[in-house]
Amino acid sequence: MPHFGFSQDVFIVLVGRKREVRKIHWGSWEKPCESKDLGGLGFRNLETFNKALLAKQGWRLILKPNSLVARVLKNRYYPASSFMNANKCSLGSMIWNNILWGRGILEVDTRWRIGNGSTVSINIDRWIPRPSTFQIVSPCVFGDSTTVNGLMLPLGGWNVLLLKAFFSENKVEKI
C-alpha cells in the first residue's frame, strides 16, 4: 500500500520495499490537486483556498460594516475610505495584510450595482457593465468625488441627455 508524504511543492509517494529501502517516486503537486475524475486525488490547492477564505472575510467587511470587527478594522486601517480603497499599511497586522491579499479576488470580480448612486464615484468605482474593467477608461470631466447620482433624474432613472453629453454612445448604452 502506498504511503503519502507532503512537501510545499512536491508530492511524494513511497511505494514498495526492496531490502528495507523505500522507493521514492516524485511528482508535481498539481497531479493530486486534479479532480478525481481526471485521475487526481481531489486535494484542494491550499493557497487558492486560503485566498478565497480571506476574500470572504473582506466581503463580510463590505456587507456588514456595522459589525464589531468591521468597525475596529475601519477605525484602525481605513477611517476615511472604504475597504475596497484601503491602502496596505506597513504597520498593519498580519490578519489585515492577509485580508487585503484576499481582496484581490474581490477587485477582479465585483462591481457596484447602482441604487440611488449617492456613494459610487463616477471615476474611481467600478460601476459600468464592461467585462474588462467596469470603469470609465477615457478621461472624464468629473472630479473624483463626483457621484453617480449626479447623472440620474430626481425620481430615479438615468438622465440620458446628460449621459450623451459626457459619454460616448457605446458607454451610454452600457450604462
Results as ranks from 00 to 15, higher is better:
Pro2Arg: 08
Phe6His: 07
Ser7Thr: 12
Asp9Pro: 00
Ile12His: 11
Val13Met: 05
Val13Leu: 07
Leu14Phe: 10
Arg19Asp: 09
Arg19Asn: 10
Ile24Lys: 12
Trp26Gly: 01
Gly27Met: 12
Glu30Lys: 10
Glu30Ile: 06
Lys31Tyr: 06
Pro32Thr: 08
Pro32Ala: 10
Ser35Lys: 14
Asp37Asn: 12
Arg44Gln: 14
Leu46Trp: 11
Phe49Asn: 14
Asn50Arg: 15
Lys51Asp: 15
Gly58Met: 05
Arg60Leu: 08
Lys64Ala: 06
Ser67Trp: 04
Ala70Val: 07
Val72Met: 09
Leu73Asp: 03
Lys74Gly: 08
Arg76Tyr: 03
Tyr78Arg: 01
Pro79Tyr: 03
Ser82Ile: 03
Ser82Asn: 10
Phe83Pro: 01
Asn85Ile: 01
Lys88Gln: 14
Lys88Glu: 15
Cys89Glu: 11
Leu91Val: 12
Asn98His: 14
Ile99Cys: 10
Trp101Asn: 15
Gly102Gln: 13
Gly102Arg: 13
Arg103Ala: 09
Gly104Val: 12
Gly104Pro: 11
Ile105Asn: 10
Leu106Asp: 08
Asn116Thr: 06
Ser118Trp: 00
Ser118Ile: 05
Val120Lys: 00
Ser121Phe: 01
Ser121Asn: 00
Asn123Gly: 00
Asn123Trp: 00
Ile124Trp: 00
Asp125Leu: 00
Asp125Asn: 04
Arg126Met: 00
Ile128Ser: 00
Ile128Cys: 03
Pro129Arg: 01
Pro129Asp: 03
Pro131Thr: 03
Phe134Ile: 01
Ile136Glu: 01
Pro139Ser: 11
Cys140Trp: 02
Val141Asn: 10
Val141Tyr: 05
Gly143Ala: 09
Asp144Gln: 06
Ser145Gly: 01
Ser145Tyr: 04
Thr146Pro: 00
Gly150Val: 08
Met152Ile: 07
Leu153Gln: 13
Pro154Asn: 05
Leu155Ala: 13
Gly157Cys: 05
Leu161Pro: 06
Leu163Glu: 08
Lys164Gly: 02
Ala165Met: 13
Phe166Met: 12
Phe167Val: 04
Ser168Trp: 01
Ser168Ala: 05
Asn170Gln: 11
